[in-house]
Design a protein around this nucleic acid. Structure first.
Lengths: 187, 187
DNA sequence: CGAACAGTAGAACGAGTGTTCTCCTTGGTC
DNA sequence: GACCAAGGAGAACACTCGTTCTACTGTTCG
């Protein structure tokens, strides 16, 4: 009857795929491990997804949506536009300190894939574009002279903090990035 | 006679491994492809390296040394300490625009490996620590109040620019990072 | 009831993986 | 000349990969 009813099995598959990819990367996430972890049969996976590539892309798109929702919601929990811009890095800090933090899934999977035209890379690019657009909105609300330039600079701070936090294990990168953002905003 | 004579075959193997890993990642670099590309036999590879892991680590350590040499040499081609700090990003820009640029090999391979204790991750951490130490030296020469803090902030700008350049394909990230560095240095 | 469907369990297949092996050639060194 | 280490070409092994298949179990609905 209802064609848009949420399919439970499909959701489980996507959930588990998303988690395994984030934890260990695409190559290390075998269909066998997926079957065992999700508790579904191989046939069920191939019923909903043409092949592993399609499954991976769908899982990453799901993570894109969910991460952006979580991030923007958390950042928006402050009053003034200036607070929101600084809050970007406070929320990042909380993410770094959370259990199971493994950096940004999209940076990681981009590094795994050599071909820039690979669907995985395109999803990553779209994700970062969405993040840039969101930051740009905040900059506009803040009343920045050049919101686009400011947003691009803040994005560099965000990506830099994430990368340093992952590779060096230095979670204080969020604080250092926030310190730079403060100077940039003239606060 | 001379025990420290440079071994040509070993060098070729390391060279090709380094290039293939940078181009396509560790998982995509099979021993078979390595044999065909390097024009050496499997036996030769296993004569010099215990297994693939050891080869990968050795190739990454080699890249660490060579990249740092190249980078510091290029950056040091300026007169004043202030110029050198800004030159960090000019050199980065040149790297981004160079043919075959695929981001930072150490960020990429860190994303490929889930386990933080993996030798690959340790090599990456050491590489970024060396880079941080170098930037810290420049900051000290510059006469910064807190060279360590400044260096950590500049490192975030560097890693952020690299990540944005790779994932978004936006090479102007180097310019934007340099712009922020200028503000940070009060120039 | 019975057809249709979503699902599990698991075998099977071909291709690719890292690794080891044998056989052959080459270029020195006692 | 005898020896031996270095290297090449490629077969072979055990394993894992993604993918497909068959056989069986419920559930739903006309």
């Amino acid at each position: 009857m209802n064609e848009s009813i949420s399919n439970e099995t499909r959701d489980i598959i996507l959930d588990v795929t998303e988690k395994l990819i984030y934890k260990s990367g695409i190559a290390a996430t075998s269909m066998d491990l997926l079957v065992k972890t999700a508790g579904v049969s191989r046939k069920s996976i191939y019923r909903y997804f043409a092949d592993k590539d399609a499954l991976v892309v769908a899982a990453l798109q799901r993570r894109d949506i969910r991460w952006m929702h979580w991030f923007t919601n958390a950042v928006d929990q402050t009053e003034t536009p200036a607070d929101r811009l600084l809050n970007l890095f406070t929320v990042l800090k909380g993410w770094f300190d959370s259990e199971g933090f493994r950096g940004c899934a999209f940076i990681n999977t981009s590094g795994e894939t050599g071909d820039p035209q690979d669907p995985v890379r395109l999803v990553a690019k779209e994700h970062k574009q969405k993040l840039l657009d969101y930051v740009c909105e905040l900059c506009t609300e803040y009343g920045a002279e050049d919101p686009q330039l400011l947003a691009r600079q803040l994005l560099i701070l965000i990506e830099g903090a994430i990368t340093v936090a992952l590779v060096m294990g230095d979670h204080s990168a969020a604080d250092n990035a926030q310190c730079m953002a403060r100077k940039l905003l003239g606060l």
